[in-house]
Design a protein around this nucleic acid. Structure first.
Lengths: 146, 146
DNA sequence: CCTTCATATATGCAATTGCATCTATATTGA
DNA sequence: TCAATATAGATGCAATTGCATATATGAAGG
């Protein structure tokens, strides 16, 4: 008779756990980054998308879709990356409104350097707390939310 | 011979999934909040901790521990809540450095009003995507990260 | 007591975010 | 061709965050 709109307690616990686990892990990883003198974690995602991409370059709106960054935030993040010489904006010929964002050599190097710290952090804060099957199960459940 | 410092791919997928699922769900929920003309989600957590607490009041450092907010952020969040009349700072007699943060009637009302939107959002963005046992399993796995 | 150190909270300032809007093109359809 | 509309990206400004440090008080030791 009644519509389902109230979450069950399991649902609420999943949501609270999701928030807390993410915040806690993120804070721990960012702390490791700072201790290593690295730039913020967000830089990694952009650089990694670029490195993964075909020609080492993407349009801003493509990065946006892959990273969930807001358009205006991405625009300024690219500014900062460019100022540090990690990416370069290049003309996009087929459409004068657009541009390419290209990873520079320095950007690729930084991405690789960041991964050394990042991978250790992920193992330390996530891997070490879960068995292999648990990690797989967690990834599978989280993918249902995407 | 080699130490474990690289995460397995399952671990990395769990981490990426954790970030993405949280961001996506959080953005969706905040959007619902804005659509309902409600203040930011962060306000809820503080108000809820206060309402749950014994006398409807807590010391700032207790809120800090329960919410994972940084001390300086909490201090100013309390300012904003106070400015809206949702909480009140009161003297803490045993230690003149400290204070109580007390939920006002308006604060309790706001908390309850926020929960109406919040609970619907949680159900919509989390509950609807998971079966009951899946939600339980997810909550259990996430709790291992805490 | 008085000095030294620890704890609770606040705050100045720079960096980042969110919001709204702008500019510059492209696309569409009359 | 041209007005209307849509898309790509940038930007001014206010709000929030992070960092470092300040203020005020308490606790401990000599």
């Amino acid at each position: 008779m009644s519509e389902r709109s109230a979450p069950t307690s399991a649902t609420t616990e999943a949501w609270v756990g999701l928030m807390r686990a993410q915040q806690r892990a993120l804070a721990a990883i960012e702390k490791d980054f700072k201790a290593a003198g690295l730039p913020p974690l967000g830089w990694y995602d952009v650089l990694w998308e670029l490195v993964k991409a075909e020609a080492g370059r993407l349009r801003p709106f493509e990065i946006e879709a892959r990273t969930l960054l807001a358009q205006y935030n991405l625009s300024r993040l690219i500014d900062r990356l460019e100022k540090e010489g990690l990416v370069r904006r290049e003309a996009y010929d087929e459409d004068a409104r657009g541009c390419w964002v290209v990873a520079t050599e320095a950007g690729r190097g930084m991405r690789a350097r960041m991964w050394e710290t990042y991978s250790r952090s992920i193992e330390k804060h996530i891997g070490a707390r879960l068995s292999e099957p648990e990690a797989r199960e967690l990834a599978a459940l989280l993918s249902r939310l995407l």
